[in-house]
Design a protein around this nucleic acid. Sequence first.
DNA 1: GTGATTGCAAATCCTTTGCAATCTG
DNA 2: CAGATTGCAAAGGATTTGCAATCAC
Lengths: 140, 140
Amino acid sequence: MTLTEEIISDLRDSGYRITPQRELIIRAIAESGRHMPVEDIYAAVQEQTSAVNLATIYRTLEMLWEEGLVHRNDLHEGKLAYAVAEHGPHLHLVCRRCKRVIDVDPDILAPLQAVLREREQFEADLEHLSLFGLCIECRD
Amino acid sequence: MTLTEEIISDLRDSGYRITPQRELIIRAIAESGRHMPVEDIYAAVQEQTSAVNLATIYRTLEMLWEEGLVHRNDLHEGKLAYAVAEHGPHLHLVCRRCKRVIDVDPDILAPLQAVLREREQFEADLEHLSLFGLCIECRD
DNA sequence: GTGATTGCAAATCCTTTGCAATCTG
DNA sequence: CAGATTGCAAAGGATTTGCAATCAC
């Protein structure tokens, strides 16, 4: 079963209806293998057919996120971006001065995730996280 | 020296000009002792005088953030919020399903911060962070 | 005086919503 | 068939920008 099929199956189990639009949207995210801003998802879907409205995309993504089937990242410039849960984890360090982005091995977050799970009983999504700060060159 | 004065002094040292508007904005954040959305900062400044424009507030806050004099948090609903650096640290765990917010002792982040500093030479702002996930009641 | 900063108003951009029409199960 | 979902167009809201006037140094 492909990733797209899995997500669709999950949705059906949860009582959602599967429309061609939803399928296209899910496929676009799943096959991209990356974190996509809404804008890109819309463009990807448009390539297949022009019959999907932006509002539908927003509504579908919100639903997928609430169901835990995609990750959402709204850190960058107030824009929303989504990726399928199985998309490889990422940790970005963003320098607030030079805007440089450093990619880090996300395993670094494992201890924190464990502590939150044990101590707060909270299952944190740390797979697509951006942290702000200053890189070495921008520190005085 | 008060917190407001310190920030102003830093700005002057960096070559920025100190206008009454900037002073009011800085004072509003510093004296609030909390994380404020732009909206609240605007309201607080308006209470003193109606002579400050929203655009000026946005421009000033962006500048303060780039200078590292305030923290910025744009996680919640795409809105920007700011707080002075000395405002006590916070860590919020936000349940993406029930929207509940759990407050956690931010010391929990100290090990992560240390690792980022040593291994990536990155000084991360982890003092006002919101992490998303599922709380115990929303996990199936 | 000079360049930085502000106010104003308009423009952008992202996202949400109401409602009638259309589909899915 | 009934209720969920979509498209459309309009509204909403946050943030940004151009430019002339003003102010800090």
